[in-house]
């Protein structure tokens, strides 16, 4: 559906995107995960036609995405990182202006405004100036403004930056609902948790390069790493810890022990059963799974938040 093909973009001496290629399928919730400055927003700006790439091409179906292809913009909805709203105007006035610029008018526009306000749960604040809204409400309206023209694909550039957990969850639910209704969503974030929770497929980007791409399971499997076991350090556990070496490789930390299981202990039930046998109760045990943070760390040697 959306084919990003060998995109290169330089800003003076900085290579923002280095030969980036991604395919996004219809109906996917596609995540672009990377630290700040990795090139996520630059790629998004090229997809929406705000910036032009130095080389490479982007195709939506058979159509070339470019600054001059205005017709294609009707198929794209863009949720910017910034609160891109006229703060002194009301929610309704903002939506009316943006709707009209997508050639919506009359009853159709009014209905669409009501529909998106209902979706983002701001119907009762329709007439209020946006400047009086909370951060989370502004974010929701920011999303609503991108849905007025019923786009086929929704491009979200870190749409939850600076939002409280409650509003963030509300936005997640809305996006999942939209995806379920058939919209393709491209979502950039530097929050691993968001990517894991929302995205059916992901690409990890760093310094303008795509370093990995696939489903969450695909990416974690790249690590070839088993779950790790953490055992709380207490008098009860410390006395028996030497017996654990049978299960796996042991590392001692200030407040806990970490065990990476040996072959034969891939299944958690077997680990729990062995620990119980040793005399370490379940209450002191925590199993940690590898996550995208580990994938990023493994591939770049850095944390996502570095």
């Amino acid at each position: 559906m959306l084919r990003i093909d060998h995109i290169v973009k330089h800003f003076e001496n900085l290579t923002a995107l280095n030969n980036v290629s991604i395919n996004i399928n219809k109906g996917e919730f596609f995540g672009l995960l990377g630290p700040n400055g990795a090139g996520k927003s630059t790629l998004m700006n090229i997809i929406i036609g705000y910036l032009e790439s130095d080389s490479g091409k982007i195709l939506y179906g058979d159509e070339h995405v470019s600054k001059n292809n205005l017709a294609l913009r009707k198929k794209f909805g863009y949720v910017p990182q910034e609160i891109s709203l006229y703060l002194e105007l009301s929610a309704y006035q903002n939506l009316k202006i943006f709707g009209q610029l997508f050639n919506l008018q009359g009853k159709a526009l009014e209905n669409k405004i009501d529909e998106v306000l209902l979706l983002v749960q701001l119907t009762d604040r329709k007439k209020d100036p946006v400047k009086d809204f909370s951060g989370g409400m502004k974010r929701r309206l920011n999303l609503a403004a991108s849905l007025l023209h019923d786009p086929e694909i929704l491009l979200c550039d870190e749409p939850t930056v600076g939002v409280d957990p409650q509003s963030r969850n509300a936005i997640f639910d809305m996006l999942l609902q939209l995806n379920k209704s058939g919209k393709t969503i491209v979502y950039t974030t530097h929050y691993m948790e968001e990517a894991e929770r929302l995205c059916s497929r992901l690409a990890i980007i760093d310094h303008g390069n795509i370093i990995a791409e696939g489903t969450l399971i695909d990416l974690i499997n790249l690590l070839n790493q088993r779950d790790t076991i953490k055992i709380q350090k207490t008098s009860a556990t410390s006395s028996k810890i030497s017996l654990i070496q049978e299960i796996g490789q042991l590392t001692e930390y200030d407040f806990y022990y970490e065990v990476i299981p040996n072959t034969g202990f891939e299944r958690n039930s077997k680990i729990f059963s062995k620990l119980e046998q040793i005399g370490i109760p379940n209450v002191f045990i925590q199993i940690s799974r590898a996550n995208l943070e580990d994938v990023f760390l493994n591939m770049t040697g850095r944390s996502l938040r570095d």
Partner: peptide, 14 residues
């Protein structure tokens, strides 16, 4: 700075 210009530039207007 507010981002509204970018939003406008993503719409079907030149």
């Amino acid at each position: 700075q507010e981002g509204t210009l970018k939003r406008l530039l993503c719409m079907p207007i030149t």
